[in-house]
Design a binder for these strands. Structure first.
Lengths: 333, 333
DNA sequence: CTGTTAGCGCATTCAA
DNA sequence: TTGAATGCGCTAACAG
């Protein structure tokens, strides 16, 4: 049986209240402090979080629902989220929603049942419906990567349109006039990037023809097939913007297996430099998201909401993307 | 404020004990059952897991420590583990050990502090030291992917030597006599696969020359560099065994960027068909682990250990690997 | 600064 | 089968 606060009381002769106060950071006479610390050490005492939670109505646990736990993007965010939470004494319960709205809603309900103090969601849903049980139970929610209109939740994300504009501007600067985009048309972020890219290109007098707009799923396959299709056209584009990690990976593989080479025959600007650049020749030019900052910010934010019971109007934290310049974009200018 | 069992009592007129009994699956008169169920529905009652845990000394939570939450291998296992646990009403707290033994030990201590009922570890450590606080607190542990000698823990894994032998046998059957291996020399599984491959090749009278034994880290980079090195030799091998997912990915990329092609110039047999085969041409021949079975078995096992308080001598569940035949191995015979 | 007391929500005796 | 009573380990009043 693990030691309880009573055992500390017996060994030190102090009262429960004094010991509890010490445990929660209150002021105690130095001599008593020493006694308590020794007893804790001797008895290998650890606070019973369930008993504490029953009184304080806090579990010191955060639920994290991710749209795909197998994706590198989620995995890396989870790493940073987990670090911050753990350093603050919070544990994270993770549930995978597999890009399924129903599962996502079940995850939130599961979190509530498990008495989490707060929830972080990397959403797959476009609608706010899945959050209703969190709302009802008054549990704070932070959205990561995507915001959801009308959700009333704080959100940490990048400006996807601006990020895509960066990519477009770089291609324009390098003199590319025949540009294509491979994007995910099944998710908010993909569509935003698509819009940002097309708009910037249009504004520059270089609208993207329909045959160079490759819509599809968020997958290596789509990147691979689309790049093959683009390469087989009589009028190939000179540059392609691949709007997420998986699409970039697939596109690069397609080029490498083809008779063409990057950047001599085709330029690529990718998205999310998760690992690819360590491996691929030439070094890829990439739009990069601040993964560490995003994960840490989301974790700090949920901790803040939990502690402050803050009911201010929701904030959007829009972080900056940047371009890591490699050698995958040829300068035609 | 959420409803408590007291509110159910007030509405139904029954006693706390009866309601509690119902909640825990006991027998209650049909009419009372109806009353209770209606009250639960009306009041939107949910059991307070912390209060329940305080009494039962169970948190219905399992800690999962993974060696790298960013890796596809861990991500996919987590998916299956999470499903089984959730379906049984258990939540999973995840901690990343980043392949660091110290972190791994801290993770276990953190789990204990959080009163988990059981622990699943996908270990990075070779030593059992990091498990000591689990031992002391008598918390069951299941190791996944790697066993640790003397740990006294149940374990779910594959037979890595046998798996590598399968790969060797396939190359032999196809008439390959100049074979190379790219492997991870920093982890148990990699070393086992290395040993299995070399042994089978030696037994067949085709020992692997040292210059064809590419030791290194578990990384895409190592696969990439090693394959490049092999390709640049005057006497190239005719086939290469890449012993994990990342190494396979790196090796494939290297070949695709080179003037050589697979399988005409060089055959590859890979490991862990996580996603690669959907994308790469030619379709890869792969040694595959039963990921779903592994994750589910580990989760079922920890649930069993938790419920049974089973103190039998530890078991090793060694699952079968198989080969998925693609077109990446040329038949020279 | 310290001690006494009550009670968080529930499961589990033991009687009835 | 049901009900009344007890306590899991801890925090938070409040009084000293």
């Amino acid at each position: 049986m693990p030691a309880t606060i009573r055992d500390i009381k017996d060994q030190t002769g102090l009262s429960l209240a004094t010991i509890s106060k010490y445990l929660n950071g209150g002021n105690v006479l130095p001599e008593n402090k020493v006694k308590i610390e020794r007893a804790i050490n001797d008895l290998d005492y650890q606070v019973n979080e369930m008993a504490r939670g029953l009184v304080t109505n806090m579990s010191r646990t955060v639920g994290v629902s991710v749209h795909d736990i197998g994706s590198l993007f989620c995995g890396i965010l989870l790493r940073y989220i987990g670090d911050v939470l753990k350093n603050n004494g919070y544990s994270m319960i993770i549930c995978d929603s597999r890009d399924d709205a129903k599962r996502e809603e079940e995850n939130i309900e599961f979190f509530i049942k498990k008495n989490v103090d707060g929830i972080i969601v990397i959403p797959s849903s476009q609608s706010k419906d899945f959050l209703k049980s969190a709302k009802k139970n008054n549990i704070p929610v932070v959205l990561l990567d995507r915001s959801i209109t009308g959700s009333g939740c704080d959100c940490v994300r990048i400006d996807n349109r601006a990020a895509a504009s960066l990519a477009a501007a770089l291609l324009i600067d390098n003199g590319h006039k025949a540009n294509a985009i491979i994007y995910s048309s099944v998710e908010y972020t993909g569509i935003e990037r698509y819009k940002g890219f097309l708009e910037t290109m249009s504004d520059a007098g270089m609208p993207i023809p329909e045959e160079f707009q490759m819509a599809g799923t968020h997958s290596i396959e789509h990147g691979y097939r689309s790049m093959n299709e683009l390469l087989s056209k009589k009028n190939r584009p000179t540059a392609v913007f691949t709007t997420n990690y998986e699409l970039t990976l697939g596109a690069v593989m397609a080029v490498n297996e083809s008779k063409y080479s990057c950047p001599d025959d085709i330029s690529i600007i990718g998205f999310d430099n998760l690992i690819l650049s360590h491996v691929v020749q030439p070094k890829m030019t990439m739009v990069v998201q601040p993964m560490k900052e995003m994960g840490e910010k989301a974790a700090q934010l949920i901790l803040f909401k939990i502690k402050s019971k803050d009911k201010d109007s929701p904030m959007e934290y829009v972080l900056n993307t940047s371009i890591e310049v490699g050698n995958s974009v040829l300068n035609l200018a």
